[in-house]
Nucleic acid binder design. Structure first.
Length: 562
RNA sequence: UGCCGGAUAGCUCAAUUGGCAGAGCGGCUGACUCUGGAUCAGCAGGUUCAAGGUUCGAGCCCUUGUCCGGCAGCCA
């Protein structure tokens, strides 16, 4: 909890508000919480929320709770509790011993509901969901009072007790707050506090058949935990008057809710419903598909928690609706992986090279830097031989202007090895290049020429004899439109799915990666960052491309073809 | 036609209680390099949504308007 502090953190409207609260004595400490509902896997948008909540607690020397907002047994499941805990822990967030469940407060919430009934501020309502909907009015017209609104306190107490005692079926009755059916804020029109649900709860079992609604429960949870600042997304702004109303009527400790804009990203989707549809529609391979912005997907793809944290820091926080271009995220991933990922050579589209003057059958081991950015990373030995593979794209029979790589008669450097010169291009009957015959200069071992001559390009390679075959999964944006929901009449976002979001190729990789465990991250030099997939095993290697390297050559080439 | 928000550089955000509109990313140019990567340096980029008002002074306060988002689950 030391990597962030007040001085080094740029401020934002949330931190300013909190500073003000502290200054004015509204609160004397800072205590935040992250309150996910365990009904889905977390995505990068949640990561932003986590880093706002946790980051603020750290910055102000306060505390942070992880709390499951598990008030709806129909949607929630232990599976998601476990997944969310794993994800939040993976992000590097420390909630110490403060892992809580809203469901542990049900008894207290019940008592408070009884209190509100006694105050004449809540009543049992027999309206059906349909009737209640009609009586609510509309966005521009007031609602009408429930016929059950004026039941006596005694009757309400009795009925509410019977609700709890399982005397009624689902939906037969609700407990509602008695506020104002003509309020311009629909959420203040006698909102439901309890509904009947004969369903098993993942922590409570069958103890309860009435469950508190979000609006009733959330402020109470915050209050019980001594949270000072209940930070949530913009959609809850309109709920704040209700949040305040319950706390004020109860006269209990009153945290402050402040809302911020949630994270959206272009070229992807960020909703539980769509994740489910994409998985069930087989558009992706699961919730941890590396193309999904779920934390499980990002983790599998090879993204580091540090990159996510830095991304969240850079995008900041405001009350704007915004959609971030994924290039900003990719930049954060590169920045972190550049510092930490071991370099390795891999050829994804092989072209055979035969060194005609290299001794037949000989293999020598070239010393290679594991990470030029990190001297501590050490070196490794990479086998070199007479027959090599280079990248197809690193050879052009007719080089375009400013093409510095290999072409007939040109000399280039093979990384960590020798200079080679291309002498002969072997083709098949169709004119397709089959292989290159080159010579190497033994004087240039290690990469420098004793006579001081320079080459413009350095290329990666693997020795044919010792190369490992690997499946490499190349990912692109899941959607081909910045806004996947931008569709023609009658179509939905799935029509914007990018057909090329996953491309599987076979590559040759240097043998040092042989026993790499799933999750291990590498930089394939000059190509990008890759991560060993969980499908990988002793007999077949599988890599995911996390992100490509920044490619300035691609830019130059594009500019030239214009 | 209701209520609650929002609008500052291409993108995301800043701008002490009203006081010279800045940063990161992106773009462009150059340097350097055993990754055409990384790194470094420089440059360009703005009618702060519009119109009015208050003020010595407005991105900030007031009024009106425009555009965008959210809100009518017994979801959260």
């Amino acid at each position: 909890m030391s990597d962030s502090n007040l001085e080094s953190t740029s401020s934002d409207f949330l931190r300013e508000a909190i500073k003000q609260d502290l200054k004015e004595g509204r609160f004397t400490k800072v205590h935040t919480r992250f309150p996910p509902e365990p009904n889905a896997y977390l995505h990068i948008g949640h990561a932003k929320a986590v880093w706002i909540d946790y980051g603020i607690a750290v910055d102000f020397g306060g505390k942070f709770n992880l709390r499951f907002d598990d008030t709806n047994p129909l949607k929630e499941d232990q599976e998601f509790v476990d997944g969310i805990i794993e994800d939040v822990r993976w992000l590097g967030v420390d909630w110490e011993d403060r892992l809580f469940f809203a469901s542990n407060y049900f008894e207290q919430m019940y008592d408070w509901a009884v209190e509100l009934i006694k105050k004449g501020k809540a009543f049992v309502c027999d309206l059906t969901p349909e009737q209640m909907g009609e009586a609510r009015g509309t966005i521009t017209s007031p609602g009408t009072n429930s016929p059950w609104r004026d039941r006596s306190v005694e009757e309400n107490l009795d009925l509410f007790g019977r609700m709890r005692a399982a005397e009624y079926p689902d939906g037969a009755k609700t407990l509602r707050a008695k506020i104002d059916m003509s309020s311009p804020n629909i959420h203040m029109r006698d909102p439901v506090m309890y509904r009947i649900r004969h369903a098993e709860h993942h922590t409570q079992g069958n103890k309860w058949c009435i469950y508190p609604s979000y609006d009733w429960a959330h402020g109470l949870e915050d209050s019980i935990e001594g949270v000072t600042h209940s930070l949530c997304s913009l959609e809850y702004e309109i709920h704040r008057p209700l949040y305040d109303w319950f706390l004020d009527e109860l006269g209990i400790y009153h945290p402050r809710q402040i809302e911020f804009g949630r994270l959206n990203m272009t070229f992807t989707v960020m909703s539980k419903r769509k994740f489910i549809e994409l998985v069930e529609g087989k558009h992706v391979r699961g919730y941890d598909d590396p193309r999904l912005p779920t934390l499980a997907g990002l983790r599998r793809r090879g993204v580091t928690p540090e990159a996510i944290k830095e991304f969240c820091r850079r995008i900041g926080v405001s009350k704007n609706d915004s959609a971030i271009d994924p290039v900003h995220f990719e930049e954060c991933i590169r920045e972190d992986l550049n510092k930490t990922a071991q370099r390795v050579m891999a050829v994804s589209s092989p072209l055979k090279v035969v060194l005609t003057n290299y001794p037949e059958g000989e293999i020598e081991y070239m010393e290679a830097n594991n990470n030029p950015e990190d001297p501590e990373a050490g070196t490794r030995k990479v086998p070199f031989g007479k027959v090599l593979y280079i990248e197809k794209d690193d050879f052009r029979e007719v080089p375009p202007p400013k093409y510095y790589r290999l072409s007939p008669g040109k000399e280039v450097r093979l990384r960590n090895a020798y200079f080679i010169t291309c002498n002969e291009v072997i083709k098949d009957e169709n004119g397709e290049v089959l292989e290159l015959h080159c010579t190497y200069d033994p004087q240039t071992r290690g990469g420098d020429a004793p006579d001081g001559r320079k080459v413009k390009a350095t290329m990666h390679w693997v020795a044919a004899e010792t190369a490992l075959k690997a499946e490499v999964r190349l990912y692109e944006y899941l959607f081909s439109k910045a806004d996947p929901d931008d569709v023609e009449e009658g179509k939905d976002y799935t029509s914007n799915l990018n057909p090329d979001s996953l491309k599987i190729i076979e590559a040759f990789v240097e043998p040092s990666v042989k026993d790499a465990k799933p999750g291990t991250r590498y930089q394939f030099e000059r190509q990008g960052y890759f991560c060993v997939d969980k499908d990988s095993n002793e007999t077949s290697l599988v890599f995911n491309r996390t992100v490509t390297l920044r490619d300035s050559w691609a830019k130059i080439e594009k500019a030239q073809t214009k």
